[in-house]
Amino acid sequence: FWLYLGEGLVLPLASALVMALTAFALNMSYGYFVESRSKRELAHLFGTYVPPELVDEMVKDPDSYSMKATSKELTVMFCDMRGFTKMSEKMEPTQLQALLNGVFSRLTDLIRANRGTIDKYMGDCVMAFWGAPVETPEHARLAVKTALEMATTVRKINEEHRAKGIPEIGVGVGLNTGPMCVGDMGSDIRRSYTVIGDAVNLGSRLEGLSKVYGVDIVVSESTRKLVPEFGWQELDRVRVKGKEQSVGIYWPMAPVDRLEKAQNDELKAWATFLKAYRAQDWDQCDLMMLNLQRMNAKKYLYELYSERVASMRLLPFDPEWDGATNFETK
């Protein structure tokens, strides 16, 4: 302006303004496309593992998430479908495939609806975990809730199978909470977002124990402590293969506010039985077992412990016994 008044000079302002606006537009476009690409890459990386709702949360701040391995407290689930081996002997492969995929889809929907991350499918088993990649403080509660919903869904599936003349299936779920290494792991050829560690291995062992105790869900003590709003029946203290320390295992009966008086009475009687069992007071065990079997005559857990008491009664008192059951197989 002063050059114009004093010297009569006119600068080409139009071209300068165009250049400035072009630079601004390019900068904004670059930032937009880089951000969009980052979000697309994040959605591609995690889209097959986590529910769409969690991906939507993640793309709001993509820089906070990566495949880099880290150690976190998570809850892991192993869910094994039972009965498909027998079905495979009688059904065509395509029929079995359609049936298995249908069951998997319904159970997977429950995992995703409860903010779970699908880890992998292994034959007729699905593995999932809660708490990563998105922080989920209530990971243990959501995992237990999912397991109970799975058990309910399998019962509904069996009703459909009976109506169609198809053999019924069973389900065994193991849940454990603890520190796990989570991240993108594998080879140069194939990798996956997964969890590893002792806590993961224990979750797998617990799934296998569901058959031993005649229940559909087995939950570790570490998970139970984080979910006090459920009524729990202690199944045992176990020492699994490769571990020196025993862990408590539990079965979730129902949310505390839905427990009936009869169920509460049964839990109290069972707690008294376990106290006598671990004290090796076999006469008291027999007395309490009579009461328990009157309360729930069809419960396999009580049949199992009746047989244990009968066999252990023949042994001398062992002051070194800690009340735990040892399992030497995986």
Rank of each mutant, 00 (worst) to 15 (best):
G8A: 09
R40M: 11
S187R: 08
N201K: 10
C285Q: 03
K299S: 13
A254D: 11
L175N: 04
K156I: 05
K60I: 14
K39P: 04
M295A: 07
A128Y: 01
F84W: 05
E207P: 03
T152N: 07
F104S: 04
M19V: 14
M122L: 14
G186H: 00
L26V: 15
E159N: 09
Y30Q: 12
T177M: 07
R224A: 06
P228L: 05
K211Q: 09
A276K: 12
D184K: 06
L148N: 07
E307C: 12
N264W: 13
D236V: 10
R239V: 15
E159Q: 13
H139C: 07
G170N: 00
T223R: 03
K156D: 09
A279M: 10
K268P: 02
V76Y: 08
D56K: 14
V144E: 07
N326D: 12
L290A: 14
V18S: 09
T325S: 14
T70R: 15
Y305R: 09
V76R: 04
M312L: 15
K275I: 07
V227H: 02
G174F: 04
L209G: 08
L74C: 06
M295G: 02
G170H: 01
I196K: 10
T117Q: 06
K39E: 10
I196T: 11
Y277R: 08
I189S: 14
D56A: 15
V134C: 01
M289E: 04
G165E: 02
V59M: 02
L26T: 11
N27A: 14
T22G: 13
N176P: 03
K72L: 15
G170Q: 04
E160Q: 10
G131V: 04
A279L: 12
A151K: 06
L175F: 07
Y30V: 13
W282D: 08
D283L: 08
E53T: 09
S187G: 01
E92M: 13
F129W: 00
